[in-house]
Design a protein around this nucleic acid. Structure first.
Lengths: 226, 226
DNA sequence: ATTGCTATTATGTCTGCACATATTCCAAAG
DNA sequence: CTTTGGAATATGTGCAGACATAATAGCAAT
C-alpha cells in the first residue's frame, strides 16, 4: 500500500462500502498516514484529489468529511472549433458572414456589464466537410485588436482569440433553443429545430474581451466522463 | 515571490505577455525553482495546476510546453435535482409516473453495453414550485436494489442513488432535442419545444447501475465559470 | 540506412520535517 | 448567562533530498 493513487482508491472503497458513511468525519491525515504507512503528504495528496472531485469536504481544524449530498464535478474540454471538427475526421471550413463595427444590442451589453461603445460584430459559419457545423455570433472589443485587423475570413475569430488573447477568465453556459430563421438558414436545417447553444463571455482584467454565441447544428453532443 | 499560487500567477503572466509564446518549451522545474528561490516541489505544484487547467502540456523528459491550441477545461457541478431546485429558492416536488420491471429497449442496452435482463423502469417528474422542471427517464439494474424496494414516490431515484450507490464512474452527455409528445405533456410545454437533455450512464466495477435521461424544461441553462 | 541499446534528462512521486492558518472548544472574565 | 480570549488541533503549504519512470537523443552494430 503505497502511492497516493492507492490511498485514494482505498479511501474511495471505504466510502463505497459505507465503512465511512455519507456525512461522517473520517480520521485525520496523520492517523491515516500511520495506518497506511506513508507520509502525511501522500495522504494529503489523495484526500485533496477526492475533495476536488466533490467526494470529500475538507475544512481546517474541522477535519475531513464524506460529502453528504455529493455534487459530482465533471470536467469539460472546450476545444477550438477547428480542432473539434478535425477530431471527427472531417474537413474544416469557414465562411465569414459579417464583420462590421456596430453598437451591441442591450442583451449583449448586459452580459458584458460595461459599455465600451461600438464593437466588432462578427458572424462566422464553421463547416465540417462542407456542411454547417456551428454558427458563431460574436461581439469583440476592438480595443484589444491590432491594426490592421486580422483576416477573420482566413482564421476564425474563435481561433485568433485563443492564439492571441489566451487564458482570460470568463463564464460559459449551455442551453437548448429553437433555431431562428437566420440560424436555420445558415446551418441548413428546418426553422425551429432544437439546437444546442453555447454562450461565452470573456474578460480581461480591466475590460471585456468578447461575447460569443455558438449555435451548433442539430445532433451535437457535449460529452465527458464522470 | 513565494507560494505556489504566486508562481502560478507569474507563469501565467509570462504566457499572457508572450514572454513564453504558445507552443514553446519553458525552462525545466529545477531552473524555475532556482530563479524564483523556491523548492522544486513548489514549482511542480504550480505547473501541475496549470497543466490540469489545460494551459500547459507536460511530458516526462520532453519538458513542459505552453499549449499551442489550448483546450479550455471547465468544471461543471452536477447537483442532485432537489438541491438544484431549492438553490433557486423554489419548492421541490416529485411525481412518480411509472415504476415497473421491463426489458430495456435496444438503445439503452447499447449504451449500457451489457444485458442484465429485465430492469426497473422509472419515470419521475421533478417539480419546481409546482411547475414541471425535469422529466427523468431511468432504467435501473434491480440487482443493486434492496428488498423491499425504496419508495421512489417519496425520494427520487436520482437522490436515492447518490445516497446509496455513491461515487460510481460513468459518462454524461448533453444535447438539445425537440420535446416529444410525452415529454411535452409532462412538462406542460408545446410539443416540439427545444429542450435540454442530459444523458448519464453509470457503472459499478462489474455491472451497470443505471442509465438515465433528464429532459429539462425550456429555459434551462447549465453554466460554469472558466 | 535502419535498428537497437544506453545514457541522459525532465517530470512524477515519496519521505520527513517544519511552520502557517483556520476553526473549534473550553475556560475565564464580565 | 453571555462574551471574550486563548489553547488545541486538523489541514494547507513549504523545504530539501531521494528515487522512479518515461522518453529522447546519440551511438553502435547490423
Amino acid at each position: 500500500m503505497a502511492g497516493w493513487e492507492a490511498i485514494r482508491t482505498e479511501v474511495l472503497a471505504r466510502i463505497r462500502s459505507r465503512a465511512w458513511p455519507l456525512g461522517t468525519l473520517i480520521p485525520p491525515e496523520a492517523a491515516l498516514a500511520q495506518e497506511f504507512g506513508v507520509a502525511r503528504a501522500t495522504v494529503n495528496r489523495a484526500l485533496s484529489e477526492l475533495a476536488r472531485a466533490g467526494v470529500l469536504e475538507r475544512k481546517r481544524k474541522a477535519g475531513t468529511r464524506v460529502a453528504a449530498l455529493p455534487v459530482r464535478k465533471a470536467t469539460l474540454d472546450i476545444p477550438v472549433i477547428r480542432a473539434e471538427v478535425e477530431a471527427r475526421g472531417e474537413v474544416y471550413g469557414l465562411r465569414l458572414l459579417l464583420c462590421e463595427l456596430a453598437q451591441p444590442p442591450v442583451p449583449v451589453l448586459a452580459r458584458l456589464g460595461q459599455d465600451v461603445g461600438e464593437m466588432l460584430h462578427i458572424e462566422t459559419l464553421h463547416l465540417a466537410s462542407g456542411r454547417g457545423f456551428v454558427l458563431e455570433d460574436r461581439w469583440l472589443n476592438p480595443a484589444i485588436l491590432p491594426t490592421p485587423l486580422p483576416d477573420f475570413a482566413a482564421i476564425s475569430a474563435n481561433e485568433w482569440l485563443v492564439a492571441h488573447i489566451s487564458y482570460a477568465s470568463g463564464d460559459i453556459s449551455f442551453s437548448a433553443e429553437a433555431a431562428n430563421d437566420a440560424a436555420a438558414a445558415a446551418l441548413g436545417v428546418a426553422q425551429g429545430s432544437a439546437v444546442f447553444v453555447t454562450e461565452r463571455c470573456t474578460w480581461a482584467p480591466d475590460a471585456p474581451i468578447t461575447w460569443v454565441r455558438l449555435i451548433h447544428a442539430p445532433g451535437y453532443r457535449l460529452s465527458t466522463v464522470l
